[in-house]
Design a protein around this nucleic acid. Structure first.
Length: 515
DNA sequence: CGACGGGACGC
DNA sequence: CGACGGGACGC
């Protein structure tokens, strides 16, 4: 019975995985979690080849509930490879077993065991920087009123703390509402992970140095869809033949020039972005020429944006001009692109690293905003009688078209959002009846007065807040939008009362310890 | 009528 | 050094 009760280990997932944030496209992760649920509960053991499953069971079952022991054997010869996986039901059990058994010998087998927490199947044997710290440190959400001593006080019951930290605003030292707790031993971290007050929402912290923020924007943000590379050509791994700075982009016709310009302008060095509608084989689509003033930016744009769904379901095709064809305005085969080999000169200036985080943030915002426009256009046309599909040529000027089924009042064209770290000059209180429209629509509508920093609705409530970096923009939004409708929801829009930052939002901790 | 989210690290 | 199989819901 090497694989005991698999069925029962599908225990219920953590309490606060809010389904709100987890609709579709999680398929890939389920596969992994099947082997690593709860996280880091599987051991990877390097050992003498003669050790049997029963040897392992005898020496490891004292640390907890073993769900499976798998002694890896060669597929053809069936000879043991000296590697075993042991799946525990809890992270802390695996951690304790590792701490106790690593380096020990069992039975009369001479070779000491090497006992590690297994990597994900995806990661395999790849080395990871900061490996130890990853399993010793928790990321926790904390009430803003909580200080480091409070945090330490709660978490010290689970073991010896290396440090606790709360991340604070640089200037004001105000808590940002999250922090880290680090222990010296993984079993302590795991105990805290399992037993701390659930309002901390603990997770094992990511290692701090992120090698590449590249795709971060596409993960964890629900407005995004995952960027894939299948379908169109091969991933050329960042190569850029002949110093090409010009790209050809094929986009859904629902994307307009302004949206496309904003998207590609997030990468520094954009010289030119020209979109035209193109009819090929009965289909309309947008074809754009995009030129950067340096090779690195062009390559970077191709790597980032090729295959990206913008809007969701509409994949961009981004090619470096001249990559596969040269100087041919038309090519045989389907996508006959304007492939004008060009080199707009310019210095070899790579996108600086420090902009990458901003890039990620802005990219997410810009895409969300553009997506809202496109989806709104789509919804409005569904509502109408024309039967036209999203992206019919008539929707080219989405920005300025008065569209009563989207919003009951004529709106200014879309504006970029203000930087996330802008100073909040005015906050609006928004109430929607009977229920709030999708956030992307609100974001678009309230964004059109410029200088919108952020807008959110409270979960399950009919009200929310919009933060502006400019009083003029905020006041205009009130004047134009109060009493109007967005996608059938009537809105009240008024200045928000100042947020009382004191105890009102304080969360209670149940300081009960459960082991 | 209605009133306050999520969260990823400054040295 | 040392990284991934076999079997397969349960009404």
């Amino acid at each position: 019975m090497s694989s005991s009760d698999k069925g029962s280990r599908r225990h219920d997932s953590r309490e606060s995985r809010d389904s709100y944030h987890m609709h579709n496209s999680e398929g890939r992760f389920n596969k992994e979690s099947k082997y690593d649920d709860p996280p880091h509960s599987r051991l990877f053991i390097v050992c003498g080849k003669s050790i049997t499953e029963e040897d392992f069971r005898e020496h490891f079952s004292k640390y907890g509930t073993i769900e499976e022991i798998w002694v890896v054997k060669d597929r053809v010869t069936e000879e043991p490879k000296g590697v075993t996986y042991i799946k525990f039901s809890k992270t802390s059990e695996a951690a304790l077993a590792m701490e106790e058994m690593n380096g020990r010998c069992i039975g009369n087998h001479p070779r000491p065991l090497k006992v590690l927490i297994a990597h994900s199947r995806e990661q395999g044997s790849r080395r990871e920087i900061n490996e130890e710290e990853r399993l010793l440190r928790l990321f926790v959400v904390v009430p803003k009123t909580l200080n480091e001593s409070d945090l330490r006080e709660h978490f010290s019951q689970f073991g010896d703390i290396d440090y606790v930290s709360i991340v604070r605003e640089r200037g004001t030292r105000e808590s940002k509402g999250f922090g880290y707790v680090k222990y010296h031993r993984m079993s302590h971290t795991a105990k805290a992970f399992e037993n701390c007050d659930r309002s901390f929402k603990p997770v094992f912290a990511d290692p701090k140095p992120q090698k590449d923020s590249k795709m971060d924007v596409f993960r964890g943000n629900n407005d995004m869809r995952e960027m894939r590379n299948d379908g169109f050509g091969v991933d050329s791994g960042g190569l850029n033949p002949d110093g090409v700075t010009r790209l050809t982009v094929i986009a859904s016709p629902s994307v307009n020039q302004d949206q496309l310009w904003r998207l590609f302008d997030l990468i520094p060095g954009l010289d030119y972005c020209d979109l035209r509608k193109d009819r090929k084989s009965g289909q309309t689509r947008g074809v754009a020429n995009v030129v950067y003033n340096n090779i690195q930016s062009a390559t970077y744009a191709r790597d980032k944006l090729h295959g990206f769904e913008y809007p969701p379901g509409q994949r961009l095709i981004v090619k470096l001009d001249g990559h596969s064809h040269h100087d041919m305005p038309q090519c045989s085969g389907a996508p006959s692109l304007a492939l004008v080999s060009a080199n707009a000169g310019g210095g070899a200036r790579p996108p600086p690293n420090n902009i990458q985080q901003d890039l990620a943030t802005q990219l997410a915002e810009t895409i969300a905003q553009a997506t809202s426009l496109i989806q709104a256009a789509g919804l409005s046309q569904q509502g109408g009688s024309s039967g036209a599909m999203i992206g019919s040529p008539s929707s080219g000027g989405v920005g300025e078209t008065y569209n009563p089924s989207y919003c009951s009042v004529k709106l200014p064209p879309p504006q970029p959002l203000a930087p996330v770290d802008s100073q909040v000059v005015e906050r609006l209180f928004i109430v929607c009846h009977p229920s709030p429209p999708p956030l992307y629509a609100l974001k678009d509508v309230f964004g059109r007065f410029g200088n919108l920093i952020d807008i959110y609705m409270l979960n399950g409530k009919t009200f929310g807040y919009a933060k502006y970096a400019s009083k003029e923009s905020a006041d205009k939004a009130i004047m134009v939008l109060h009493g109007q409708e967005v996608l059938g929801a009537r809105m009240k829009v008024m200045e928000a009362d100042p947020h009382d930052k004191n105890d009102s939002g304080r969360k209670r901790l149940r300081m009960d310890d459960q082991n």
